[in-house]
Amino acid sequence: MSGASTSNNKQVLKSEWMDGFRDLLVVMMPILTFGIMFGAASSAAGYSIGVSVWSSAAIFAGASQFVFLEVFKEGIPGWSVVLAVFAVNFRHILYSAAIANKVRDFNKWQKAFGFFLLTDLQFAVTENRFSNFKGKRKITPSYYFGFGIFSYALWVIGTVVGAVFGSLIEDPALIGLDFVLPIYFLSILMGFRKRERFFPVVLVSGIVSLIVKNTLGAPWHISLGALAGIAAAVIFSMIYPSKPMVIEDEEEETTLV
């Protein structure tokens, strides 16, 4: 790029932004719809519009925000919510490790803000673009933020719409809003089904969490149930050695190591 004229540079920069925006258009409706569902579920759980929007603006992660709604109830300590959110977001650690060498040219602030925007979708489009160019073209900040900033805006806008809509509904159960969380988590869970050791993990976590919920009680069923499932995964990996680690996304499978 060093030999190009300034106007040329500007044009490239503009088309990078446009590419990011164009890739966003494809997933615009799902982002908006999920935002609306979160806003409505948050209202149904009794939170004000302000709190619901603050959640989307500060966290910007559907799974974390739904976990907050599901887990944070009367008598449940804050630390157990923090722990559950941390664990649910574990996949992001793998994303950020995988994306690290693609954003190497970002400056310090672009990295700091860029990782804030690293959702499942952002990861998927970034990996996809990188592999489309077979590594010959770098991921530019313009592309990355062209996708990321607009998806953030859509998420917040969707939440406002959903929260306002949800606050107008007198009986959330009438349209099933009281049960949107279990269905949502089930769909997320099933997204992991192609991973190795999926079934032993789910079986062990499910059984142990049921037992603990009926003996020690909440919130211990989450941490102890999860630990049991993780232990099962480790034991299984020792009995049946695995293939190299892969990260799942809708577009493709990316080898991390």
Binding site: N89, R195, S205, S209, G225, G229
Partner: peptide, 23 residues
């Protein structure tokens, strides 16, 4: 490998504990 297996299992393990008892 065991660390990989553990890292990979975390999200599914946690989400299971959130889904199964209420369902």
């Amino acid at each position: 490998t065991p660390v990989q297996a553990a890292l990979e299992a975390v999200p599914a393990a946690v989400i299971t504990t959130i889904v199964v008892p209420p369902a």
